Computed example of a mutant assay.
Amino acid sequence: MKLLGISGSLRRASFNTALLHAAAELLPSGHTLAIHDLHGLPLFDQDVEEQGDPAEVVALKDAIAAADALLLASPEYNGGISGVLKNAIDWASRKGTARETAPLAGKRVCIVGASPGITGTVRAQDALRLVLRRAGAVVEPQGEVLVFQAHTKIADGKLADERTRELLARHLQTFVAPTGRTS
């Protein structure tokens, strides 16, 4: 399975981007994860869309369309989804002028998230599931990877906490299993 990872954080030392890098290491063999950067993605604007998707939007939509599934790493900002991730979903939920279907329509999505808070990213993940379903994506598996107190588990851009690594590996295994579930 070819997965596309998208971090909802633009920060250089992002816990969520580190989580995607750990996921790339922990994926079962035969599966790959490419990470798509959201720097430079313009704010969604239907007037701009009607003139044709900007290059950054085309690149995002092409990457999503080419992937078998998505792995979204969501921070939690003020109890919700980061603006940058919501913006990416808004663009990817639309056909644009050059597509027959929106890239997110029917796309399988797995969500993970890391935050310095004690509840991890539970509210952001709930909100993200709602937005993704509304966009036509299929969110699996039902379990959650909520990396709480991420500053104690991620150091120098690496997921160092072994228990969290094991949880992430099991979550990914369930997601890439042929039926979406392990036996």
Rank of each mutant, 00 (worst) to 15 (best):
A65W: 00
L70A: 01
K153R: 14
A102G: 05
V176N: 01
K2R: 15
S29W: 02
Q46M: 14
P141T: 05
L27W: 01
G79P: 11
P75H: 10
H31N: 14
E144S: 14
G96V: 06
P103Y: 06
L43K: 00
A160Q: 15
T32P: 02
S7L: 06
I89T: 00
W91I: 05
A59V: 13
V57D: 08
L172K: 05
L172H: 01
G117E: 11
D126A: 15
N16C: 05
T182W: 09
T179P: 02
P141G: 09
A160Y: 00
E49Q: 14
P103R: 02
S9Y: 04
I118Q: 13
A22G: 09
L72N: 02
R94A: 07
L10M: 13
W91N: 05
F148Q: 13
G52Y: 12
D53A: 15
S93W: 03
A22F: 12
L85F: 04
E166G: 10
V145Q: 03
R134C: 09
L85Y: 08
A169K: 09
A73R: 02
N87E: 02
A160L: 15
R170Y: 03
F15C: 01
K86F: 06
L167Q: 12
P116T: 07
S183R: 15
F148S: 14
Q125R: 04
W91Y: 08
G136V: 08
A73C: 06
G80Q: 13
E56W: 00
D47F: 13
A67C: 08
A18C: 08
A67W: 01
A155Y: 12
R99I: 10
L10A: 11
A137K: 03
H171L: 12
P141R: 00
A69L: 00
A23Y: 01
G30A: 10
D62I: 14
I35S: 09
F175I: 03
K61R: 13
A127F: 08
L172Q: 04
A137C: 09
A160V: 15
E25F: 03
L26W: 01
L33N: 07
L26Q: 06
T32Q: 14
A65C: 09
V138Q: 06
A137W: 04
H171K: 06
